[in-house]
Amino acid sequence: KRPMNAFMVWAKDERRKILQAFPDMHNSNISKILGSRWKAMTNLEKQPYYEEQARLSKQHLEKYPDYK
């Protein structure tokens, strides 16, 4: 399994927040909201998630050095 990218790292927690506020919302609508919010964020706001992506990628490479 591939490591999560920056968007997926961010969306994991954001999806939970949306589901808590709107428990009956369909997944497709949640995904649209998440995509819009991510696009509206600045690079500075996204930076911590890119850093986490890099950490996860490094960890994955160490754990699975032959992964293609």
Rank of each mutant, 00 (worst) to 15 (best):
K1Q: 03
R2D: 08
R2Q: 13
P3A: 09
M4R: 11
M4N: 11
N5M: 03
N5H: 00
A6D: 03
M8T: 14
W10F: 06
W10Y: 07
W10P: 02
A11C: 06
A11E: 11
A11N: 06
K12Y: 01
K12H: 09
K12P: 02
E14C: 07
E14A: 10
E14G: 03
R15V: 08
R16H: 13
R16L: 12
K17N: 10
K17Y: 02
K17A: 10
I18T: 02
I18K: 00
I18Y: 05
L19N: 14
L19I: 14
Q20S: 11
Q20H: 06
Q20K: 08
A21T: 12
A21K: 12
A21N: 12
A21Y: 08
A21S: 11
F22L: 08
F22I: 01
P23Q: 02
D24P: 00
D24Y: 02
H26Q: 14
H26P: 14
N27E: 15
N27C: 10
N27G: 13
N27I: 14
N27T: 12
S28H: 07
S28G: 09
S28P: 06
S28M: 09
N29W: 10
N29V: 14
N29T: 15
I30V: 12
S31V: 11
S31C: 07
K32S: 08
K32T: 07
K32G: 05
K32D: 11
I33H: 03
I33V: 08
S36D: 05
S36G: 10
R37G: 04
W38T: 00
W38H: 00
W38E: 02
W38I: 00
W38A: 00
K39W: 03
M41I: 01
M41Y: 00
M41W: 02
M41K: 02
T42I: 00
L44D: 15
L44W: 08
L44P: 05
L44A: 14
L44C: 06
E45G: 04
E45V: 04
E45W: 07
E45A: 05
K46S: 01
Q47G: 08
Q47L: 10
P48E: 04
P48D: 05
Y49S: 03
Y49V: 05
Y50H: 03
Y50I: 07
Y50K: 04
E51S: 06
E51V: 07
E52R: 06
E52W: 02
Q53G: 10
Q53I: 14
A54C: 11
R55K: 07
S57I: 12
S57N: 12
S57M: 07
S57K: 12
K58Q: 13
K58H: 08
Q59W: 03
H60P: 11
L61N: 12
Y64V: 14
P65C: 06
P65T: 08
P65H: 15
D66W: 04
D66K: 08
Y67P: 14
Y67G: 15
K68R: 10
K68D: 15
